[in-house]
Design a protein around this nucleic acid. Structure first.
Length: 723
DNA sequence: CACGCTTATATTTTT
DNA sequence: TATAAGCGTG
């Protein structure tokens, strides 16, 4: 018997043992959701279900590994490792390697991450000549996000433009051109973006042979964070389920025994739906019993995480939502806790951001004095850049931290440079990667790149990849190098480069050759390839970047992480599907004492919990973000974001609200805006201990303050001249 | 044709 | 800050 099963409360037990009909677990924050889900998997295994036939879909890799870790410690490691666990995207990647051929996909397809697909969109944008239009054309990021929104919401471009991008409405026709060129290019080069992973998976579930085969794979499908799935993901789940009357004999197959229906178990909390911007729709959860007839619902309401005072604030925020906000939750539940004694949460208002940073640092050190390690504390915020000021202060005080969310180091230019080198080796038809690498060299610009791509036949996809595909159907490793003519021709010296680039090009040719020098079954270890490519970087970086040496040492870090992988292809794929969530920028690599503070966006903090939580920038304008004002659905999501943040705290909760902050993130101007603490806190203000920060505004701010004051005065004077 | 300069402009969250 | 677009120089 699973040891902790006995520690489960009746509702949790019910969720673990329920069989026979689809199950929806409505699990409030901190109600032991992870524990319950893990216990259910353990129970399934103990009941004799083949672990391999269990699919556990989670929102992040972190969530999957935590859950499977628990499973492993309750059963045995081998069983746990055979469970299919991971994100929708990672699982799709795995399935498409095997079943993708039914959809005409090469098993060696490359996955583009967000930045890659944005870059590709940018290439298409310029190639299609949208640079020189009379009207200013949307930037590549905007184009890419419109595209993704259209795909994920499955809505018409015109409707998306009207509702979400009104300022781009004029470019509807042009966008169509770009989108189809973008799609054509992806197909041509056997490349999939994140959205494709979902689309292809869904399409395959309704393919005549692959569909039934995939449905045969799993007997149990468990989905975590169901409130944050989008319509495509919902289709996928349904498409992966055997129902009583589908497939089986109906499809005319030979087996005389009809397989039992697949059992689905979804877990979620609609009060914590915070991914609407990614087209997640809580409606999936609300419609669960329509999508899965005969479904049973179990509600978990006992909160094991937070003290009553903290829970009181969180419940209050949710219950007393302002009328401008629509309904926040459809499932009735009231969280309660047995941890009835606890500190009253604190709300601190600050004069400005600098004062907030200093106070937070002091609070953190204070809490540590009281016995709360840094690792038990987190600072949460709405947007990645909200921690900028605090990070400086933390570094100044030598407080180690790790930041989750915001810009990741994989997205920094120099890391992408190196990954592009690997990607060329992996898929010599990857024009995007070639483009990046070639133009990094001295004296090579857009025109030369075009010429080289042409001369080397990089864009000549059939020649470059078909050989690889034919020779290694379904194999794990990438195609043998000698068949990829573009790359081998480059190595052999084809492709004239300008004199200024010849040394760099020679180094690159040699490095590529060395990286490919292993034989087909025994590739050069990926870490060694990274190291071999480094000299090229040291030639090229100084022209490209100011701080070349710092960036070069990041390459070493990359080599270190490559060490964990046996093949380059796997390394690249894992990296795009499961990018390390941490930012590289740290206050020194986690100090000797191995204790560090967590900084995180609220989105990335989902599922986390800490003894002390410091929520910063909780001022109107930031929370809710003023971009959501006027949009009911958006406001509701902002409120749930607040709820998620508050419910991360176990023992101590401090909410900080600076009353002045910059209007523009990158603003070189001194413009500030005055704000109130978040309106979401208004109904629960009496549940807080309120105080005004004693920290003085920083010197710079005083100057800025004067500046603003003086400007106002002058402007008023001027205005009086013509009014 | 590359590259270094100048200008205007945007707005958040992530697999 | 970073991206896009335009312009002048070599």
């Amino acid at each position: 018997m699973f040891a902790t099963t006995t520690e489960l409360n009746p509702q949790q037990q019910h969720a673990v043992h329920h069989r026979g009909t689809p199950l929806l677990i409505v699990a409030g924050a901190g109600t032991g959701k992870t524990k319950t889900l893990a216990a259910r998997v353990v129970q399934l295994i103990e009941d004799g279900v083949d672990p391999q036939r269990i699919l556990l879909l989670t929102f992040t890799r972190r969530a999957a590994s935590e859950m499977l870790h628990r499973v492993a410690s309750a059963t045995d490691d081998r069983a746990a490792s055979r469970v299919w666990g991971g994100t929708f995207h990672a699982t799709s990647n795995r399935l498409l390697r095997n079943f993708g051929q039914a959809a005409g996909l090469s098993p060696n397809f490359t996955v583009l991450d967000q930045a890659d697909s944005t870059d590709l969109m940018g290439m298409v944008r310029t190639d299609e000549g949208f640079g020189e239009r009379s009207k200013r054309f949307p930037r590549k990021d905007t184009v890419a996000s419109i595209y993704s929104r259209v795909v994920n919401s499955q809505a018409k471009l015109a409707d998306v433009l009207e509702s979400d991008y009104p300022w781009c409405a004029d470019h509807g026709e042009d966008l169509k051109v770009i989108f189809s060129a973008y799609t054509a290019r992806k197909r041509r080069h056997h490349v999939l973006d994140y959205d494709d992973l979902l689309l292809f998976w869904r399409a395959l579930t309704s393919a005549p042979t692959a569909g039934p085969q995939m449905r045969e794979l799993f007997d149990h499908i468990l989905i975590d964070e169901y409130q944050d799935t989008n319509p495509i993901q919902s289709d996928i789940i349904r498409g992966m389920c055997r129902t009583a009357d589908a497939d089986g004999r109906a499809a005319g197959d030979t087996s005389s025994i009809q397989s039992k229906p697949t059992e689905v178990c979804a877990v979620g909390d609609d009060a914590q739906a915070i991914y609407g911007f990614r087209c997640a729709s809580v409606e999936n959860m609300w419609a669960f019993s329509e999508h899965f007839p005969g479904a049973t619902t179990v509600t978990l309401e006992q909160n094991y995480r937070s003290t009553s005072p903290i829970l009181g604030v969180a419940n209050g925020v949710l219950a007393a939502a302002p009328t401008s906000v629509g309904p926040t939750s459809h499932f009735a539940k009231e969280l309660w806790s047995t941890k009835t004694n606890g500190q009253t949460p604190t709300l601190v208002t600050h004069h400005d951001e600098g004062a907030q940073s200093r106070t937070v640092c002091e609070n953190i050190l204070d809490a540590r004095e009281r016995g709360i390690d840094l690792r038990d504390q987190a600072v949460l915020f709405r947007a990645g850049h909200h921690s900028d000021g605090l990070e400086l202060e933390l570094v100044r005080r030598d407080i180690p931290f790790v930041k989750y969310g915001g810009l990741k180091y994989l997205e920094s230019a120099h890391v992408k440079d190196l990954l592009s080198l690997l990607r060329i080796l992996d898929n010599p038809a990857d024009v995007l990667a070639w483009h990046r690498v070639l133009s990094a060299m001295e004296g090579i610009g857009p025109a030369t790149v075009r010429r080289l791509v042409d001369e080397l036949g990089i864009d000549d996809v059939d020649a470059a990849t078909s050989a690889a595909t034919d020779s290694q159907p379904l194999a794990e490793a990438a195609g043998p190098p000698e068949t990829s003519t573009a790359l081998s021709r480059f190595i052999a010296g084809d492709g004239k480069v300008p004199a200024a680039a010849s040394a760099e090009a020679d180094e690159l040719r040699a490095a590529f050759a060395d990286c490919l020098s292993g034989n087909a079954n025994d590739e050069v270890p990926p870490a060694d390839q990274v190291n071999r490519l480094k000299p090229f970087c040291s030639l090229v970086f100084p022209n490209r970047y100011d701080n070349a040496s710092a960036r070069l040492s990041d390459i070493d870090q990359l080599a270190a992480s490559a060490r964990a992988y046996g093949s380059r292809h796997r390394f690249l794929t894992e990296l795009t599907l499961d990018p390390p969530g941490k930012t590289s920028e740290q206050a020194g690599p986690p100090h000797l004492d191995d204790d560090w503070l967590t900084l995180s966006t609220i989105h990335s903090a989902k599922g986390g919990e800490w003894r002390a939580v410091h929520l910063i920038h909780a001022a109107d304008g930031n929370m809710p973000s003023d971009m959501a004002l006027g949009d009911q659905a958006g406001m509701a999501e902002e409120l749930r974001l607040m709820y998620v943040a508050l419910t991360r705290a176990k023992d101590e909760l401090t909410v900080h609200a600076p009353l002045r902050f910059h209007v523009n993130r990158h603003g070189r101007d001194d413009r500030h805006v005055l704000a109130q603490p978040s309106r979401f806190l208004d109904p629960v203000r009496e549940l807080f201990d309120e105080s005004a920060s004693s920290a003085q505004p920083s010197d710079e701010t005083v100057i800025e303050l004067d500046g603003v004051g003086v400007t106002d005065e002058v402007d008023t004077l001027l205005a009086s001249l013509w009014d």
